[in-house]
Design a protein around this nucleic acid. Structure first.
Lengths: 203, 203
DNA sequence: GTGGTTTAATAACGACCATTATGAAAAAGC
DNA sequence: GCTTTTTCATAATGGTCGTTATTAAACCAC
């Protein structure tokens, strides 16, 4: 019983995600959000709670809707292919939409008011989760002989993430996809060569 | 004639720089600034103008006071040494102060309100200037045979900047100096080997 | 159709934002 | 000592922030 909700919650979340992607958590006001979503403030509060939980929902949606290349990359046969796929996919995603360039995980909330510390920490954990998955994947690669014995999976994961973060910053500054791809290629240039048996999994 | 200024403008600028470094342009309020500087609002306005021009002054100061490793690195004999010096200096700077970690050029203002677009653009140009200097230095290195004929100075410069940006993001997230140095080492692993005469300048 | 329940839009809330008017305090010239 | 000029602190400006009463509208059960 009771009145039906007149707007699509999923669509509203998509619209909110776009605003946060473009302006970050603190830069996005409810005036921006309601204008983009086409729904008045109280409706957003009743559907999503406050601004922080709306952002967290948008971040979840960002992960499942735009970061799907990440888990798919982890399944590729070699560490090098994993890195390459993530790098070039990110170059594409970071420049896919003329507005909302870059990565929500980076410029969603890097620095700002003390009030937004919780959101900042949420993004830190968001990135740490991806890095941990990479590290685990590279440890496996090392065990499989796909990475040399001297390789440091933790350093490789952090390094790859650093390049991704940097590409996001550059995308936000207006770098073209081609330039980001050149960065990706350069990042792959120093990728450690396989140890014993690099190509015995896929073919 | 007239009353003397009772506070040190240089000290005030240093204090303002610390606040912007920590919280970014939009995240730093005048309440934060006056608390850190120990000077009331009207004094800041009369000495520096509005918030934007105060930030620009702080950015200038940041460059000349904390980015001096950059021009010094450019004078090193080989492109690899240039890159290495900048990478490890940044790892140190990004973790030198427990508060104000990372780089002002990155999280000073990446995303935010439309009102701060001018400041955002100022930071884009700040970074672009550094990248242009790197590109010019690498072009010289290529001409000197210090980089191979196949090397792309623009891509190398963008790549190096990307790693630096990523390290700044990671520093802000709490990464240790050791971890950032591991990232720096990994970034150097793929640096192109010298072409014809890599070591005929310094020794 | 009526009562109970949920959503909708309007408009307000206090708090904080960057910026500035106001007038007192202090220094220099005469 | 008095005037002029600059800096100082107090306090207020209009505006926007995130959040929420309040009230009207829409729906279901009976």
């Amino acid at each position: 019983m009771g009145r039906h909700r007149e707007f699509d919650v999923e669509k509203a979340l998509d619209a909110a995600l776009c605003v946060f992607w473009r302006k970050g958590y603190e830069g996005a006001s409810y005036a921006d959000l309601t204008a983009a979503i086409g729904v008045e403030r109280p409706a957003l509060y009743s559907a999503f709670g406050n601004k922080e939980s709306l952002f967290r929902r948008a971040l979840e949606r960002y992960e499942e809707r735009y970061m799907d290349h990440f888990p798919r990359a982890l399944q590729l046969p070699t560490a090098r292919e994993v890195a390459a796929h993530i790098l070039f996919s990110s170059a594409e995603l970071n420049t896919r939409f003329p507005d909302q360039r870059g990565c929500l995980g980076i410029h969603g909330n890097l620095a700002g008011t003390d009030d937004s510390e919780a959101v900042r920490q949420a993004l830190v954990e968001f990135r740490a989760k991806g890095e941990a998955q990479l590290r685990a994947r590279f440890e496996r690669a090392k065990a499989e002989g796909d990475l040399p014995e001297t390789a440091r999976p933790d350093a490789l994961a952090a390094y790859l993430m650093a390049v991704l973060h940097g590409m996001a910053v550059q995308a936000k500054a207006g770098f073209s996809r081609e330039m980001l791809e050149a960065v990706a290629e350069q990042a792959l240039a120093g990728w450690p060569a396989g140890g014993t048996a690099p190509s015995n999994k896929s073919a």
